[in-house]
């Protein structure tokens, strides 16, 4: 990869997630919490990865073995908030950037022209397009939250690690006279992590040794998806099952290390 493709921003804080795949039961609470929090409209169809507006999708992984050796795992996929995002550099109108302390890749809806180049660039399919205007059944628009504006058709959107919660946490810290750049554990967590009944989603500052994600991301069972492409995701996964870890990346025959 040529040097110029990489955005080298070094942040003091690196918000990250460590998702314990072995603890995810695939219950879907995180997805519902995400939709409610971020004003993602309901749909009259089941999930359609080709058309649904979604920020968080839970993949079902299978080990591919026949019964009774089969095993399954659920893998929730938010935006990876890549350290080296493939999407941000390609946007022609600077509608998506990675330039704020914390390393969250932003998405500026009023700026987006809807060219979808970022979607072509992202191998995680974290980005979705508003193919139509959003619709809520009559009255249900009263449940819209004040956190995220409603996106019209024709713009791209994606998970922001509930960035508004980061803002709120910073504001609260400032009001209490604390350093907004040194938030305590769990002072800022996204809606999905908050909703998860098993606590499979840990969230915090990957740089901060006081946050549990710092340790967890260094676990021998930790892996990131498509690490070999150089996207440097800020979302880590944990699994004690080798077959799950192997599905985190692609390997060819001659690769020595195969994600186990």
């Amino acid at each position: 990869m040529s040097e110029s493709m990489q955005i080298h921003e070094h942040f003091q804080i690196k918000w990250g997630m460590v998702i314990d795949v072995d603890k995810c039961t695939g219950c879907g609470a995180c997805q519902v919490a995400c939709q409610a929090e971020n004003n993602i409209p309901p749909s009259q169809q089941s999930f359609d990865r080709l058309r649904s507006v979604h920020w968080l999708y839970v993949y079902k992984l299978e080990n591919g073995r026949p019964y009774p050796e089969s095993d399954i795992a659920y893998l929730p996929r938010p935006c990876m908030q890549c350290g080296n995002p493939s999407c941000a550099s390609v946007c022609p109108v600077i509608a998506t950037t990675k330039d704020e302390e914390g390393g969250i890749v932003s998405q500026i809806y009023p700026r987006c022209i809807g060219c979808r180049y970022c979607m072509a660039a992202c191998p995680y399919h974290s980005r979705v397009f508003n193919w139509f205007d959003p619709v809520w059944p009559k009255g249900m628009e009263k449940t819209l939250t004040p956190y995220v504006s409603v996106r019209p058709r024709g713009v791209v959107e994606k998970c922001t690690f509930c960035h508004h919660r980061f803002q709120l946490a910073k504001r609260r810290a400032r009001a209490e006279g604390r350093d907004p750049h040194h938030l305590k554990e769990d002072e800022y967590i996204p809606a999905c992590a908050e909703a998860c009944p098993t606590g499979a989603i840990a969230f915090g500052d990957l740089h901060n040794p006081e946050h549990k994600v710092h340790q967890l991301s260094r676990s021998e069972h930790a892996f990131r998806i498509l690490e070999r492409l150089g996207t440097e995701p800020q979302v880590y996964y944990l699994s004690r099952r080798p077959w799950v870890r192997r599905q985190g990346d692609n390997y060819v025959q001659k690769d020595q290390q195969r994600g186990e």
């Binding site: 997805q31 309901p42 749909s43 999930f47 649904s52 839970v58």
Partner: peptide, 9 residues
């Protein structure tokens, strides 16, 4: 309403 969209293909 939000449940429907979490049903996989």
């Amino acid at each position: 309403p939000f449940g429907l969209k979490t049903l996989r293909e």
